[in-house]
């Protein structure tokens, strides 16, 4: 892993140098951002047989923060459900209106191994179905009834096209507050911690 990371860093630097050395007529690309978002709260009401409700917590990759904007958001969290700003409402209570062109694709691999968004099929939220499927083992998480815990499925990387046609990749690290390595019965749930890489250049699909 360390070797790969070093190699990737070198490659990145080399690529950066090469791009810097390119013809001045080419538009200068903004640097790809690699960050961690911690403890994004995702409260919900209902569940356990009752209708699920409550507002989603919206997140923007451009600002790297939670937002209350009705338009400038990319993904949103409520309980284990992740909505994207693209497509139409699925039909549950209190969903935000989709007004962007976001799409989602779930890729398999380590976070570092997903380097390109091109070639992937992006789907959008639709009536009755989230682009990132809900339910254990269907989308991003696994529910273990033996310990009553939600864990992100390791090796699943969410590749997101943002509401304004930029690309990002997300690896959810934890669903529990302060991302404990081993959550226990006292761990507070509905707090997302995730790594993400965001390419702020429109239509640029590179994710490294």
């Amino acid at each position: 892993m360390k070797m790969t990371a070093k190699f990737l860093t070198l490659l990145f630097i080399a690529t950066a140098f090469i791009s810097c050395g390119d013809d001045d007529n080419e538009p200068v690309l903004e640097a790809v951002e690699s960050k961690t978002a911690s403890n994004i709260p995702a409260p919900q009401t209902g569940g356990q047989g009752q209708p699920v409700g409550g507002p989603f917590t919206k997140f923007s990759f451009e600002t790297g923060a939670v937002t209350t904007s009705d338009t400038e958001w990319d993904i949103a969290f409520r309980g284990t459900t992740i909505a994207i700003n693209g497509g139409v409402v699925t039909g549950t209570d209190d969903e935000p209106v989709r007004n962007g062109n976001a799409g989602a694709s779930i890729a398999s691999g380590t976070f570092a191994s997903i380097t390109e968004a091109s070639g992937l099929t992006f789907i959008q939220d639709a009536d009755g179905a989230y682009a990132i499927a809900t339910g254990s083992d269907n989308g991003w998480y696994n529910y273990n009834p033996q310990v009553n815990q939600i864990a992100p499925i390791s090796g699943k990387v969410l590749v997101i096209r943002t509401h304004d046609d930029k690309y990002a990749k997300v690896e959810v690290l934890s669903y529990y507050k302060d991302a404990p390595a081993q959550p226990d019965a006292d761990s507070e749930s509905r707090f997302y911690t995730f790594n993400y890489v965001y390419n702020p250049n429109e239509e640029q699909t590179s994710l490294e």
Partner: peptide
């Protein structure tokens, strides 16, 4: 290389 686990320190997936 299709099976992953989570590194307990970084919480990132490893092969």
């Amino acid at each position: 290389d299709e099976v992953f686990a989570r590194d307990p320190k970084t919480l990132q997936a490893v092969i």
